[in-house]
Structures are given as C-alpha cells and as structure tokens.
C-alpha cells in the first residue's frame, strides 16, 4: 500500500478545514478547539494540530490531505506536516486583506521547507468583498509559473479543481525535470 500526501496550509480561518471536508471520503479527523483569544473570535472553533482527510485512489494507493493549524503559535507543526509532501495548497481568504501578509509569510515558509510544487487557492470567491485571483497573485508576489486558482472551499467541484490544478503543476514540473 502506497500513500501520498498533500498539505493544505494558509492563515487562520482561510478555509483549510472546509476544503478537506469537502473532498475527503472519511469524516475529517479534525482537532478543532474552541477559540480562546478574543482577536481570533471570528469562528467558533479552530484547528490546533492538524486536519486529516483521505481519498482512496485504488487498492494500493491512498492520498492523504493534511491541513495545518492556521494560528501562528502552532507553526512548529508546519515542518513536521510538510515532510514528504507531494505538493501543497496555500489557502487565502480573498475577502480578508488583513490576512494577505500572513499568507505571504506562510507561502514563503513552506517554499523553504521543500521544493515541491504548490498552488494558491483564492478562497471565498462567493463573498461580495472577495478580491480577484489576479489581484491576489500580485499582492502575494506569486511568480507567473505558479497557479492562483479561484476557489469556494465548501463546494466539492471547486475543491476538485484546486487539487487537479496542483496535480497538473506536479506533472508539469516532472516534465520540466525530465527535459533538463
């Protein structure tokens, strides 16, 4: 049995848990706890260790999805979760510009952990105040060869598109590595 891992990261409340919940075939093993800090009280619970979802590919292959805790004080978990990952998705709440700087920091941190392919998911595109994906690319200083994909993490079809785009990026990098 072979297992592969994709990590879903991003700032606090960017939609990581929702993305995994939307696509996982098992109930997400979530380690949410009630929010303790007043400043973070924009949702009822948050992930303090990781979220864990699964997609069975066939009898011999399983894809695991790991969601990182979004709060900065749990960032010691990030490197552990990133070990051996196939690629990663950086979730951004497109409607909360106050989180963009943190998203950029997380993106750069994960880039430094491992040279694997990644994409940015511009989440909450159904919100009225959502910034377009093209603008997020500029704000987050995402290079042109990295995809920034519009996303609604609560919709399975949208989450499928995000994962497929990441997998296409992985294939493209394999092609590039083979030719060089």
């Amino acid at each position: 049995m072979q297992t592969l891992k994709i990590v879903v990261t991003g700032p606090f409340s960017s939609g990581k848990t929702e993305l995994i919940q939307s696509i996982s075939e098992i109930d997400v093993v979530s380690t949410d706890r009630a929010i303790s800090q007043e400043a973070e009280r924009i949702k009822d619970a948050t992930t303090v260790a990781m979220d864990f979802g699964r997609i069975t590919i066939d009898e011999e292959l399983i894809l695991y999805l790991f969601g990182t805790p979004g709060q900065r004080r749990f960032d010691f978990m990030w490197e552990i979760l990133s070990e051996g990952m196939l690629g990663f998705v950086v979730m951004v709440d497109s409607s909360r510009p106050e989180t963009f700087r943190e998203a950029r920091r997380i993106l750069n941190t994960f880039k430094n952990y491992s040279p694997v392919p990644y994409i940015v998911a511009a989440n909450k595109q159904d919100m009225e105040d959502a910034w377009p994906a093209d603008d997020l690319r500029i704000v987050l200083k995402v290079s042109p060869d990295v995809k920034v994909v519009p996303c609604i993490a609560t919709e399975r079809g949208s989450v499928k598109e995000v994962l497929l785009e990441l997998l296409y990026s992985i294939l493209a990098i394999m092609d590039r590595d083979e030719t060089t």
Partner: peptide, 24 residues
C-alpha cells in the same frame, strides 16, 4: 540535500490521482 527531499513519485501515480479526483 534539499533537492532530494522531493518525494520520488512516478508519473503514473499522478495520473491515477487525477483520474480518481475527476471521478469524485
């Protein structure tokens, strides 16, 4: 070395992932 930390995965596995996720 960092370059070796990228997991060695064959293209066939990625195509399997893509096919499965398309089915979901």
């Amino acid at each position: 070395p960092v370059a070796q930390r990228r997991p060695a995965v064959k293209r066939g596995l990625i195509h399997k992932l893509i096919d499965r996720i398309r089915e979901l």
